[in-house]
Computed example of a mutant assay.
Amino acid sequence: MKKKIMGIIAIVVVATVAGYNVYTSQNNVRLSDLVLANIEALANDGESGYSCSATANCYYGGRVEGSVSCTGKVSCTSGYEYVKCDGRTNYCS
């Protein structure tokens, strides 16, 4: 009978320690998510100093006859005769 009670106590102790470890690890994830959100907000706000630019050639009659470009704070891409910066697209005219 004593062995049975000691076994139950051991199981309760192990379960309590495991539960506490899970609880504390979940709190760390929340803090980490908060820190990442703050970093992303600073980057999107332009306070980080990050900027980008994109340029694309404009073709007329098979020859390059100019270009189109843009600058942004978050994302910049270019394609065939267009550029896109921070969600705004500019095309060759």
Rank of each mutant, 00 (worst) to 15 (best):
E40I: 00
A10W: 04
T16Q: 00
E65Y: 05
N28S: 06
A41L: 13
T55Q: 08
N90G: 02
V29L: 14
Y23S: 10
Y80T: 12
S78A: 11
K2D: 10
Y91D: 09
A10F: 13
I5P: 01
K4F: 10
S25M: 12
N44T: 13
E81D: 06
V17R: 03
Y60V: 12
C58D: 00
C70R: 00
G7F: 01
T89L: 14
C70S: 03
G79M: 05
E40K: 06
T89A: 08
N57Q: 13
G19W: 12
Y60A: 11
T24C: 00
N38L: 08
S53V: 09
C70K: 01
I39W: 01
N38G: 14
S25C: 04
G62E: 02
Y20E: 07
Y60M: 07
T16G: 09
K84L: 02
V74K: 13
N44E: 15
N38Q: 12
S78E: 13
S32M: 11
D33L: 14
A15I: 06
K2T: 06
Y59L: 14
N44I: 13
D33W: 03
D86Y: 02
S53T: 14
N21L: 15
G7N: 07
T71Y: 05
S78Q: 10
V12P: 02
V29R: 11
Y82F: 14
D33Q: 14
G61V: 02
Y20G: 06
N38M: 09
R30Y: 10
G87I: 02
V35L: 13
D33H: 08
Y59K: 08
I11F: 08
S51G: 15
G7I: 03
V14W: 07
E65I: 05
G49A: 11
K4Y: 11
V35N: 11
C70G: 02
Y59I: 15
I39E: 12
V68N: 01
L34F: 09
K2F: 05
N90D: 13
Y23K: 14
A18N: 02
G46H: 06
S75R: 08
G19Y: 15
C70P: 00
G66T: 03
N27S: 14
K3T: 07
N28P: 00
V12S: 13
V29I: 15
Y50E: 15
A56T: 05
S32F: 08
V17K: 03
T77M: 00
A41E: 14
K4T: 12
V68Y: 01
S67R: 01
K84V: 04
S69Q: 06
A18T: 09
I11L: 14
K73N: 07
N21T: 13
L34Q: 13
K2S: 11
G62T: 03
S93V: 03
T24Q: 06
Y20L: 15
V12F: 13
E65L: 06
G49T: 08
G7S: 06
R30V: 07
Q26D: 12
T24P: 00
V83H: 01
G62W: 03
I5Y: 04
N44F: 12
G66D: 02
A10K: 14
Q26V: 13
N44K: 14
A15V: 05
S67M: 05
S51T: 15
V83Q: 01
C58H: 00
I11R: 05
C52K: 02
L31G: 10
R88D: 10
